[in-house]
Design a protein around this nucleic acid. Sequence first.
DNA 1: GGATGGATCAGCT
DNA 2: GCTGATCCATCCT
Length: 187
Amino acid sequence: MAARGLLGAVLKVGDCAGLVVETEAYLGVSDRAAHAFGGRRTKTNEALYGPAGTVYVYQMRQYCLLNVVTQPATIPQCVLIRAVEPIAGVAAMAMRRGRSGPAMTSGPGKLCQAFGITLADNNRAVNQGRVQLIWPGRTPALIRATPRIGVPNKGTATTAALRFFVAGNANVSDMKKRAIDPNGGWQ
DNA sequence: GGATGGATCAGCT
DNA sequence: GCTGATCCATCCT
């Protein structure tokens, strides 16, 4: 699954970069939690119907969320990037976030603020705009799966284990202190 | 450590 | 009007 394949990839925006450590899969028309559920297509989610590698930025309240389309055009599936481990441009990210440490990029809204990702980056091809994904990055020692976050009361969409993260990485959202691996969860 | 409520806003109904 | 793929401060145990 594409959501697992993104773990360990390098996300690069301008001079800032980080390793993807947490993702969620959104399975298109059959997924009640997806914006394209039932084939819904509006100006806002138009990017979902682009080719694989299209950036889909969704704004929620005062934050933006970063997605990457994973299937050919007209098949609206995507992966939400929920958290990264900062590896470059840390000072710039800390300034934009007003915070440092794990709280800087350990959530979908947080990492977009840290990298300066906005709706201006929506509906553009990865590696042809400011947002880039680069392989190889690092290899997770262990990938864990749980239900997605913020998807209540939607039957199987709520219970399905479609959230994936690098086990033990300190930048994963809601990571318990006891569960942190000193090696960052990498091989 | 866990639960709660407010901030805040574009887009859809 | 209403509704979120959120975040943070501030309670409480």
